[in-house]
Design a protein around this nucleic acid. Sequence first.
DNA 1: ACCTGAACACCGTTCAAGT
DNA 2: ACCTGAACACCGTTCAAGT
Lengths: 243, 243
Amino acid sequence: MATEDVPLPPWRKSRKPAQLRRQLSQDLIVEAGLRILDAEGLDALSMRRVAQEFDTGPASLYAHVANKEELLELVYDRVLSEIRLPERDPGRWKEQLREYMVEVHRVLAKHADLARVALANIPTGENSVRMGEFVFGLLIEAGMSPRDAALSMDRISLYVVSDAYEGSVHFTRMRAAGLSDPQEYFESFVGQIAGYYRALPAARFPHITKFVDALIADDGEERFQYGLELLLDGIEARMPRTP
Amino acid sequence: MATEDVPLPPWRKSRKPAQLRRQLSQDLIVEAGLRILDAEGLDALSMRRVAQEFDTGPASLYAHVANKEELLELVYDRVLSEIRLPERDPGRWKEQLREYMVEVHRVLAKHADLARVALANIPTGENSVRMGEFVFGLLIEAGMSPRDAALSMDRISLYVVSDAYEGSVHFTRMRAAGLSDPQEYFESFVGQIAGYYRALPAARFPHITKFVDALIADDGEERFQYGLELLLDGIEARMPRTP
DNA sequence: ACCTGAACACCGTTCAAGT
DNA sequence: ACCTGAACACCGTTCAAGT
């Protein structure tokens, strides 16, 4: 993959001389991991698959990363580095917070089911603290108490990451089903859910069966927005008055 | 594990006659899976490990469950069956919703990292719809529009499950570290975080470094409660006036 | 219909041996 | 210091053969 070798004639035992060993590095490994993640998903991102990218075995990676967990955290932080943060403007804290959440969500959604890494690992990489300083600082400067700001920041992060992960579950299922058109997948999935709801016994499930249309009306993006506004309104209620 | 056999003398080839084959069933398999989950965590819950519980190989399970995913969903629904729901009282919708969220969170937290199954699978088992009918019906009866009720229910579920999962990540780490006292783990973990924050350059991270105490003040339970109230307040703001 | 052993195509990590 | 092949201890699932 790395260097395009001329293939050896089949009767020659293809033994690479030791001098041609690949020159690995942590950065190269992380980039390869990210490529695999984007193209094939998190489940395909194995140590063996990454090593394959350098025509070698998985043992070669352990000189540059401690283990798979560290590799995933490095890939995660690499992706977070794509997030650009504006200058803080506390007077517009609500708009800025909304924009921030949408931006983080967008970047995570771009990279398959990477959000699962964040959920499973409580990341503390460079970019995580950079983002933490932005949100925490914004809330503090807008007048919130440090305790409320810390708690709000924490809940905001959980919400964005968990919703991004939920979205990626659908994406992964779509890929597993061999579909490539999100629209097509979405309609067939929603159709199945609707059919299931309609088939439920109305006596035991009166509200679900009565309002199936409302239950399937909103897609992932609208659901994300709704929860986002719920949280923002809750946070606003805890913000000191600024009339 | 299942039947307490008298051990064979070592010189006897211990070959079970075919008539003594285990009598498997889906229920027995699900119960065994739940036992393993509770005792050793979700990562230990493999088809091979479940089969071991019946002194057989993993292939034997496939007559009763389609695959591992189905087994996990069955275990998940089995756990949800522990949740008791009260009579709906729309006048107390906020209290009832709070109690519901706390109850679901409590049951999930009891069963290791099972919440991961919910997050990865969009469950549609019997108990999921039972819970859905409760929450959706409560919001409808309290006067909410079907659309808002559907969206609110969806966000509530995501919040409870994702927070339960986040909590279980700590629990799993505690077990991996060989600790058994949550207090001990919590203090060492929080101590590490605090040390990391304090060591950050104050020029780039002025707010984090200044308010370390506030950032580490609240534990998982308090963070869960805080987000819960954020959501409830947001939902209340979308509820028609009832003065 | 249900159960089984063996096999297939994978995993992450370790270790001794190479350069 | 960095890279490697081989091995270890695992996975989920399939399949032909048994009862």
